[in-house]
Structure formats: structure tokens, C-alpha cells
Amino acid sequence: MSLAGSEQTRVLIAKPGLDGHDRGAKVVVRALRDAGMDVVYTGLHQTPEEIVEAVVEEAAQVVGLSILSGAHMTLVPRILELIREQSLDDVLVVVGGTIPTEDIPELRRLGVGRVFTPGASTEAIVEFIRGALA
């Protein structure tokens, strides 16, 4: 982005589906804010439609999806599909949670920028977002 540095990166952190675990999501929200980004958190129990609406509303450049329930192979493709329908192809989609290694290539193929699994450092997440938007 040509304006990098002069404009805050806008990030939406979302909890799709019925999963109630948001410790990781909230730590990431705070770490991204500490890194100077403008971060909105959706709260729990969001449908794919609600999340994509929020992406539009917040004009988010990055959407981080946190899923620990095992429903990622249903929810993530649906969200990516809606993002494409809205012609939001520039939005960077990042996934975090308990995602089995063997599911990662398929998520990447569908358009996920990066999948962060348990133990990932917040520095790595910040660095990835900055690099991808640079």
C-alpha cells in the first residue's frame, strides 16, 4: 500500500459459527492494536453473512477468523465465497485456531492468506499482515 505508515490498517477479528472460545481472538485484537492497527472485534456466534457485512461496514482490509470448533472447512469456504460475491477480493483473510495441518493447503487454495495454529506468536501475525499489505 502506498499509504502504509500514514494510515492505520483496518482489521476485523471475527468469531464465525457457534464456538465460544475467544481467548486467542481477544489476545490477537489487543496485540494488533498495540502494533498500531485499527481493530474491530465482532463478538461471538457470527454467521458468515454477518461477518462479511461487518467487513463492508468497517471497510476492513484484513479479516481474521478464529475457529476452534472444528467447523472451519464449512465456515471458511462460505465466508470466502461471500467475500468474492461482494467483490472484496483485496481483503486479506487470515485464519487462526485448532486447524489440522492437513486442512491448511485446501484453505490456502481457497484464498486464505495464512493459517496460524496454536502457539503462533503475535509478532508473526503482525509481521505477516504488514508484509502482505505492503
Partner: peptide, 16 residues
């Protein structure tokens, strides 16, 4: 969450 398995909000979550 008191939802039936055929509720659209439960897609991908049943039995997980």
C-alpha cells in the same frame, strides 16, 4: 446452544 441439528446456523457444527 439449544438448537436443532437442522438449524441453518448449525451447518458444519453438528457432532464436532
Amino acid at each position: 446452544l439449544g438448537l436443532d441439528s437442522d438449524d441453518p446456523r448449525c451447518l458444519g457444527e453438528v457432532g464436532r
